[in-house]
Computed example of a mutant assay.
Amino acid sequence: MSSDAPQLIQQAVTGVVEEVPALKPLKLVVGIDLHGRGDMQQFRLEMPDMAVTKDIAADARVRIEMRRDFFNLMVEHGAKVADWEQAFNEGRAKATGVQQYLQLIARVVEKHQERARLRRAHH
């Protein structure tokens, strides 16, 4: 596994925050576990600064787990919020942690998608 994971994580989070700007001010520590062939890399994402470090993230309120190859593919193809949502719904990615944070993020994303659908319908 290469050490480009922190940049890829930052790229993925930046893409999501650009698509859903309401998530930008969220103060949250996220633990990210990327499973590879026989090992697992753990990262700590601190928002809103989007600082990514290789760390266990013991203070994380939310933890995200997925296979490293799947994560790389998602970022390479410029995954949108809908793609990430599908990955979570299909079980390719898993989010655990403080339920209030998970529900808040889900609600903010849902509201954003509703507004986007309404905008497209008006055109």
Rank of each mutant, 00 (worst) to 15 (best):
M1Q: 09
S2L: 00
S2Y: 11
S2G: 13
S3Y: 12
S3C: 05
D4G: 08
D4I: 00
A5C: 06
A5Q: 11
P6D: 05
Q7N: 08
L8T: 06
L8W: 11
L8V: 09
L8H: 13
L8C: 09
Q10C: 09
Q10R: 15
Q11C: 01
A12T: 12
V13H: 13
V13C: 09
G15S: 10
G15I: 06
V16N: 06
E19V: 10
E19H: 14
K24N: 13
P25Y: 15
P25N: 14
L26I: 11
L26N: 10
K27V: 03
K27S: 10
V29T: 14
V29N: 15
V30C: 03
V30H: 04
G31K: 15
G31Q: 13
I32Y: 03
I32R: 06
D33H: 13
L34Q: 02
L34K: 04
L34F: 01
G36R: 07
G38E: 02
D39P: 04
D39S: 08
D39K: 14
D39V: 04
M40Q: 13
Q41R: 14
Q41K: 13
Q42D: 07
Q42W: 05
F43Y: 13
R44W: 03
L45G: 03
L45Q: 04
L45R: 11
E46D: 06
M47L: 05
P48K: 12
D49M: 05
M50A: 07
M50Y: 03
A51C: 08
T53N: 01
T53A: 11
A57S: 00
A57E: 05
A57C: 06
A57H: 03
A58N: 07
D59A: 01
D59L: 02
D59S: 10
A60M: 04
A60N: 04
V62A: 08
R63Q: 05
I64M: 07
I64C: 06
E65H: 03
M66G: 01
R67N: 03
R67S: 05
R67A: 00
R67L: 09
D69Q: 13
F70G: 08
F70S: 05
F71C: 08
F71L: 05
F71I: 00
N72D: 10
N72I: 04
L73W: 15
L73H: 15
M74S: 06
V75L: 07
V75S: 00
E76V: 02
G78V: 02
A79W: 04
K80L: 03
V81P: 00
A82K: 15
D83S: 12
D83G: 10
W84T: 00
W84E: 01
E85M: 06
Q86Y: 09
A87V: 01
F88E: 07
E90W: 12
G91L: 08
G91T: 11
K94C: 05
A95E: 04
A95F: 11
A95G: 13
A95N: 12
T96R: 15
G97R: 15
Q99S: 13
Q100K: 14
L102Y: 05
Q103N: 10
L104Q: 14
A106Y: 14
A106L: 06
R107C: 01
R107L: 01
K111P: 07
K111M: 08
K111Y: 05
K111C: 03
K111W: 04
H112I: 12
Q113A: 09
Q113F: 01
E114G: 02
R115A: 08
R115L: 07
L118T: 11
R119A: 04
R120C: 00
R120Y: 05
R120P: 03
R120H: 09
A121S: 13
A121W: 14
A121K: 15
H123W: 09
H123D: 02
